[in-house]
Nucleic acid binder design. Structure first.
Ligand SMILES: [Zn+2]
Ligand SMILES: [Zn+2]
Ligand SMILES: [Zn+2]
Ligand SMILES: [Zn+2]
Lengths: 173, 173
DNA sequence: TACTCTTTTGTTATGTTATAACATACCTAT
DNA sequence: ATAGGTATGTTATAACATAACAAAAGAGTA
């Protein structure tokens, strides 16, 4: 089997993976998608996507702005929010509602509402697509005559490595 | 069977229900819970809870502040955020992350993370507790070694009455 | 009662996130 | 070239949230 990048295990591996490959994969996928759709992944938009992919933890718009402003003094809030709007519209990033922050999409090929596991300790957010979760929500909504437009599932907790680390640290107490 | 207040059908009934009863039920339940716990549902906190229960649509903190300020000129952001902190801590209201807004809890007796169906048209948010949704999320998290602390499920879409109304309006086009 | 400790509320200031509105630059096609 | 659309620059402001300290109110005790 081929190595799967941008899955939950990779996200929570805390640097124990080749993150350069994550970024390359994501940027290449984004470029391909935009070309196919006739959308323009301009240098600015590409730069913002790159900044978001600096890690697996969701990034705030003003963090992006600060990073952007280092090489681009004219950058202002609309600069980054417009880029984010573009990236969101094309499914290249997701907004994490409970953090007011943005994270790169692990599977931008198909349209989807994301389900996220967010580690309270290391901050990483892993995108998962559990059809059972999806089906359970759809089923319940249908029972109530509710038409679903978008599902938000965000689970706060501790990833396995952080649990282990915290437990280890606890031994000393 | 007794009439069930504050369920999804009631929430989406668009005024076709006795909302006074919703409010009374909620305030009485809140008072009971606070008494039992030795927590103080002060006039201010009670007033904020009452304002949140003016409808079934989530309310922003600054909307609450404006409403509060009419009878209480000294009210400032901390006034309302403190009251909200209290109400959240005691499970009397929920925060809707995707709206930065707050809604009354329909079942404050037991601790729970809420699942919400939010109508994009009328704005109402119905709290549901589907054990299958809950179980599916827990199961998936467990498979990935992720320890769940809090689940956020917020579904945007159209409630049945709004669908019907929009479809009806569409006939004229 | 007077005291003291704790909780709640008042008050001012500031931090953080997001958008409105209009100007300019840049592509693309005729 | 030039007109129309898309993207970015720029300034201002709206919307959401918290920090920090002061004053008041409640609850228990001497
Ligand atoms: Zn990576
Ligand atoms: Zn972690
Ligand atoms: Zn009601
Ligand atoms: Zn509705």
């Amino acid at each position: 089997m081929t190595t799967a990048f941008n899955n939950a295990a990779t996200t929570f591996s805390h640097g124990g993976h080749d993150h350069g490959t994550c970024v390359e994969t994501a940027l290449a996928a984004a470029a391909g998608i935009c070309t196919k759709r006739g959308a323009r992944l301009t240098p600015l938009r590409r730069r913002v996507l790159e900044l978001i992919w600096r890690g697996h933890a969701p990034v705030g718009a003003y963090d992006l702005l600060r990073a952007l402003a280092k090489k681009q003094p004219g950058a202002a809030p609309p600069t980054v929010y417009r880029a984010l709007d573009f990236l969101l519209a094309h499914g290249l990033v997701h907004r994490i509602e409970s953090l007011n922050a943005f994270v790169g999409c692990a599977h931008p090929q198909q349209v989807h509402g994301g389900q996220f596991l967010i580690c309270s300790d290391c901050g990483a957010a892993a995108e998962v697509h559990d059809p059972r979760v999806d089906a359970a929500i759809s089923r319940r909504a249908a029972e109530l005559g509710f038409t679903v437009r978008h599902k938000t599932v965000e689970v706060q907790g501790l990833c396995a490595p952080c649990q282990d680390r915290l437990q280890e640290a606890g031994h000393g107490n």
